[in-house]
Amino acid sequence: MDPTRVPTAWRCSLHCEREGGMSASATAERVLSSSMHTRGFPRASCTPTSSQLLDRRFTKGDGVRKKHSRDTMVLLLDELDYLVTRTQSVIYNIFEWATCAHSGIVVIGISNTMDLPERLLPRVQSRFGIMRINFLPYEHADIAAIISDRLQGLDAFDPNSIELAARKVASISGDVRRALEVCRLAAQVAEREELEAATSANENTNASTNQNTNTTAHGTKGAMAAPRHVSMSHIDEANRQLRGSVLGRSVAQLPEHQLLLLACALSLQKVRGRVDLEQHEIAERHTNLCRLYASIDTPTFEEQDEAIARLLCSRLMTPGAAPGQVRAAATAEDVRQAAKTQQRLAHILEKLPL
């Protein structure tokens, strides 16, 4: 937001700290020690002293708080689900500080899972003043607007190509990062074609200069036309290259049951609105599908565990935030493309909400 457009009466001194949950899984001091130091508080030399300083700062509100009574710290914790440990002490301490009257701290947590509050211990939930905001996947109009904003002032992309890229990504995942990656690859394809056209034109010019007689008899070779904008054909080529990535090729080479397990994980993620899934959830969905379609043999639980372990080793699945949980690392598009090569799975995956 442009500060000059904010009314003067609304302006205040706001110090915002952003931390990632993955970098703060050990202690609460690791989350806040750097931000405390930047705001004029002494840096503690050992953990007990640091704990006492933080407790005194956020719970008692005396001493150091009086010097900064008008300051408010906004602590934005990204990847908060990585702090869900067995005791959940880090999350408890942070939100406990936020409930104190003189703490001067506001905590905002961002999680990849929709059910994070329900997974917390009761004592942690009691410290939450939950105002949940769900961020849905981007629609094609939103993606097109973001791409256009990034390209503002550049006459490089045809408007139809932006629309095509946005619709292709919105129909699969709604991930704006993938849309920007498609546009980046499309620009590289167009640039490569421009260089090839320039090289071809130079070769034709040299040939016509050095071989006038032969050129008159046989004609000149037609030069490639240099693209003026990134077109829809470039977007299609970029999508084809992304589908041909290492991850996509790995999915295409999966055995039948591993591919079906991966599809089950993606389907459950979409239906339940959360990234992390229990292994037994995926196995149960897989078993039900095998029993529903008699053309596929139903594996044992040991075979399912081994298949999931192989998917983890190949990084097509990754460990979740809690023990016994996994998350799919491949995309629904990769699974759809791989299913086209396996006739027995094609009609099953068509009915799954990927």
Rank of each mutant, 00 (worst) to 15 (best):
W10E: 10
I133K: 06
K66A: 13
R30M: 10
S171N: 14
E79Q: 09
M36E: 01
K67A: 11
L32I: 07
G248V: 05
I282F: 03
A332N: 10
D115A: 15
L195E: 09
Q279T: 15
V169P: 00
H257L: 12
L116D: 03
L195C: 13
E181K: 03
Q269I: 06
L292D: 06
V31W: 03
G219L: 00
P3L: 15
V182C: 01
R5I: 12
G21L: 02
V271P: 01
L121S: 11
K221Y: 02
H140D: 09
P48M: 03
S51W: 01
Q279Y: 03
A217L: 04
N288H: 08
S33Y: 00
M36H: 05
L312C: 05
E194C: 14
S233D: 13
S25Q: 10
A170F: 04
L254C: 03
F41D: 14
V6S: 14
A44N: 05
E139S: 14
H257T: 12
I308K: 03
I146H: 02
F301N: 15
L254D: 00
I91S: 00
L120W: 00
R70T: 12
E302W: 13
L292S: 06
L247G: 07
M1C: 15
S13K: 08
I108A: 05
I308G: 00
Q188K: 07
